Simulated assay, not measured.
Amino acid sequence: MSSPAGDVHLRDLRYFVAVADAASFTRAAEALFVSQPALSKQIRALETRLGVRLLDRGAAGLVLTAEGAALLPHARRLVDDWTRVREEVRRAGTAPMLLVGLQTTVGRDLTRRLLAATREHGASMQVRLVSWSDASSGLADGSVDVAFVWLPVIAPDLETRILSREPRWVALASDHPLAPRPEVTMTDLADEPFVALPRSAGALREFWLASPDRGSPAVVAAEADTAEGAIEAVASGTGVVLLAEGNARLLARPDVVCRPVSDLAPCELAVAWRRGDTRELVRAAVAALTGATDDADAGSGPPAPPTPRATPRR
């Protein structure tokens, strides 16, 4: 190889990572939308600048040399870092936005309060509906900044503050035998087929099946990724589903009736955010929802709310 000549270009590192990951010039060229000869030329140029051979064609196909294996993690990190820097630069000139995750219709005047708080901080707000299959309501993968969640949420990297405690109700098809009753018990529902959250919802699935309050496992007739899907299954007679009192009113429709379940503990609606996220907009969002005064210490995280109160029935 010739001696090093000049600085390495980020494009060459990106091409090298693609070839190393694909173990093929052909597949890497297709992924990069460049011709194979052009890609081979760039890799040779990179090897020339570094003064080492990075790839060998062996009996098993394309393999990294020792030098190539040493370069790969550093090249990958540089490419990833530049991608993040580029996105930050692109966002720098735009107004801040609060991304809010939710899995069911929230109502309860909560989104209006959030919107008012974001506008006070010169920001905008975007609401994203997240499937029940994501127990973090979009927080885990960073797609939202704060989220409305129903407890329990088993995620050690999330902080939560309870916003309301509400009785649990059950949704039934309008012609269900239990529909005429003013309220029901878990004994009444013990043998009923249930519409469940996806298994990936974990502890939340078990909570809405009332598993801790049963003598035997629930009969699961179907699973639903959204509240609307669950109510549709109820309307068709597939099964019944537990829901919060407030959502029973928000999701009301003529072919479904909702009744309180008298012997179940209430459910808890909370606001959640990633632990350690002390951005001003996130702090303001939590303060607006909990009614607390924001703390001047940015390292303390969003403040705790006053003692939670049950949301008045509407």
Rank of each mutant, 00 (worst) to 15 (best):
R90G: 14
G239H: 03
I43V: 14
P73S: 11
D188A: 12
R309I: 11
S136M: 04
R313T: 12
R14P: 02
V79D: 02
L264C: 12
W208V: 00
F16Y: 15
R249C: 05
L98Q: 04
T226E: 00
S35E: 13
T94Y: 08
F148P: 01
W82L: 05
R283N: 13
L102E: 14
D145R: 04
R57L: 13
R53V: 12
A190V: 04
D12M: 14
R11V: 14
R27N: 02
S262M: 10
W132R: 00
P156A: 11
S236E: 14
V89R: 14
R91E: 13
T118M: 06
A123N: 12
L13T: 08
P167C: 07
P254K: 09
V52Y: 08
A116I: 09
S211N: 06
R161M: 03
G291E: 11
V220I: 15
V89P: 03
A298W: 07
L32N: 04
L50C: 06
L32V: 04
E47P: 02
A222Y: 00
G246S: 15
V8A: 05
V286N: 05
A38W: 15
D21K: 09
P212Q: 10
R181Y: 12
P260S: 10
L64V: 03
A135C: 07
V149F: 01
A22H: 11
A23W: 07
R57T: 14
A285L: 04
D191M: 09
A29R: 01
R283Q: 12
T290I: 05
M125Q: 09
K41F: 08
A60V: 14
V282T: 15
K41M: 10
D295C: 11
R108Q: 14
A123R: 06
T290F: 10
E183I: 02
S164H: 15
V240I: 15
R44Q: 13
A123G: 07
P254A: 03
A59I: 11
P302N: 10
H176R: 08
P167Y: 03
T111M: 06
P212S: 09
L269P: 00
M125F: 07
L115H: 11
V282K: 01
A233W: 00
A292T: 05
D255K: 06
R279F: 08
L78T: 03
A59D: 13
P182G: 06
P37K: 12
S262A: 15
R309G: 09
R112H: 10
T83I: 03
D134H: 07
L281G: 09
T48R: 13
R274S: 13
R205F: 06
L54E: 05
V184E: 10
F33C: 11
R108P: 01
W273T: 06
L251G: 00
S131T: 15
G239T: 07
D295T: 13
G142A: 11
R27Q: 12
V144N: 01
V127D: 06
V34H: 07
L115T: 15
T238R: 10
T105Q: 12
G58Y: 05
P260V: 11
